Structure formats: C-alpha cells, structure tokens
Simulated scan of single mutants.
Amino acid sequence: MEILSHINKRVKQRPEISLPMLDLWRIYTESTSSTIVRNFCVVYIEMAFERLLREEKGSIAPDLLINISNVPEQHQGIILRLVVKVIGECNAHKVDDAAASKYQSISGSNDGLVFSDFCFQTILYQTPPQGIGCPAGLSVVQSERVTGKLPLKGDTLVSRKLGILNVIEAMQLAPEIVYPLYLAAASDSAENIPAEQKVDPAHSSLRVRLMGVFCRSIAAANAFPYTLQCIFGCIYGTFS
C-alpha cells in the first residue's frame, strides 16, 4: 500500500508520465489474478489509458471489450466508459477498417450484447437540467453507469453518440439489437444547432403531401432510421 501511495503522489498530478497500459491489462485479465489485484489494476488501467496517444487509444479500445461480459459490473462500467470516450474522440466521423474488424469480432457474443446495451443507454442519455437529476428513460444506476457520476454535456456527448452509431454500424449487429438503438438516436435532441441555422418545419398540408410521396419511394423506405423520423415528423412533428 505504501508503494502504491508513493506512485499515486508521483504520477497522479503528472499526466506526461506514461504507465504500462498493456502490462496492466495483461495482469488484470490473467485468470490467476486475485480480486484485490484486479481492483488495483483497474484503477491504474484507467489512469494509464488516459495517457496514451489518440491513435493508441483507438487501437486498444476494442480489445478492452473482449470478455467484458465476465468482468465484475463495477469494472464493466469503468471499462465501457473508457471505450465509449475513445469512440467519441476517434470515431465520431468514421471507423477505420482495423478498428471495425475488432469491434465486429464481438458481434453475436455476450460481450457484444453488454457493449450494445451500454451504447443504447448512452444514446438515451440527455444532460439533466442544471446537471441535476436522472434523464428520462434511464434509472439512476444506468445514468451513473454511463457518466461515472459526472454529467456529459454538449459536444462531448454528441461526439460519443455519433461515434457509437458509426461503431454499431461497423459491427453489423442483428436488427433486433440495433433497432431500438437507432430509434432512440433518431429521436435524440442533443444536436447543437445554432438558432440562426434552425429551420422551422413546413406547414402541415405540405408534410401530408410529402408523406404520400415518401410512401411510394423504395429508396426513402430503405433510408432507416430516417424513415421513422420522417413519419413521426410528418404526423406529429412540431420541430424540424
């Protein structure tokens, strides 16, 4: 404990000092490691991961999901938050082939289900007013699992959600898994649109006419999830 305390004092306030991320992860995943060793490891894994270069994070993040379904729930939250944070930083615009292949490798497994469930909860997450309270659609436990008890805001939250959608697409998950996730994303209100760029919806008669046109279009019908968003917008929408 004294050694760890000494390391904390030396390292915690100096982010330029790197830590042996891969060695820590190897120790954490070894079957012979005790619970107390893993508890300490995950603390330093979180610290080490944050100190990696962006490219290293993007490469390692998918590997952290392997066997995530067998990790203690508290550790799951820490690891999943690390992965999704990197997804927001590295994959908000695209997922490169190497990362896509790694993420796709857990599709159809329990690891993929745990990850997709966390992604769904992140998509559902909205910043509470004044940063207090629990977002609609999530329990307090789920909300804290997504955020780590620190509310996500603005561009950070939007980037994570965009990155998640790109990664989920790359994973080629079963329709029954991605459908609720895409549906939640299509209804998301977290986009930061400047007031001067916001477009008011067309009047109801035009929306009804457009609805009829879209219903006859195969291309429009296949443009999921925008199809659902369009249908709800045409019928019930008051915002564009």
Rank of each mutant, 00 (worst) to 15 (best):
L65F: 06
L210A: 06
M21V: 11
V83M: 01
S34I: 02
G137I: 03
Y125L: 08
G133M: 06
Q229K: 14
E56I: 07
D200Q: 09
Y226H: 14
V213H: 05
I218K: 10
V37L: 07
L53S: 10
W25V: 12
S217C: 09
Y226I: 13
N110M: 11
V43C: 02
K153W: 02
I235C: 12
F239G: 02
G212D: 12
H203E: 14
S101M: 08
V114I: 13
N110H: 13
E2Y: 06
D117H: 15
V37S: 03
V71R: 04
R145F: 14
Q13A: 13
V86W: 02
S59K: 11
K12V: 13
S69K: 07
D111Q: 04
T156P: 00
N8Q: 12
A195R: 06
L173I: 12
V86A: 10
V178L: 06
V158H: 04
L53F: 12
L210H: 05
K161L: 02
S69T: 04
D97K: 15
E50V: 12
S5N: 14
H93I: 13
F239Y: 06
L173K: 01
I68G: 00
G133Y: 05
Y182T: 04
N91P: 00
S105N: 10
Y236T: 10
Q126A: 08
F115T: 09
G58E: 05
E55N: 15
E56L: 09
I218Y: 04
N39H: 04
Q104C: 10
I177V: 15
S59L: 10
I79S: 00
F120P: 00
L113P: 01
L64F: 04
C215G: 01
I66A: 07
L228C: 11
R207T: 03
K102Q: 14
I193D: 05
I60V: 13
F115Q: 09
P175F: 09
F49W: 08
E30R: 09
L157D: 01
I235D: 06
D155N: 02
I3V: 11
L4V: 12
Q126N: 12
F120Q: 10
E30K: 09
S240M: 06
A100L: 08
L19D: 07
R54W: 11
I7Y: 12
Y182M: 11
A61P: 03
Y236G: 03
E73K: 09
E144Q: 13
G133V: 07
V114S: 01
Y236P: 01
I60L: 15
L165T: 07
G133I: 09
S5Q: 14
S5A: 13
L165A: 08
D97M: 10
S69Q: 06
L210R: 07
H203T: 10
S187P: 00
Y125R: 09
V84C: 12
N67T: 08
I60N: 07
R209A: 09
D111M: 04
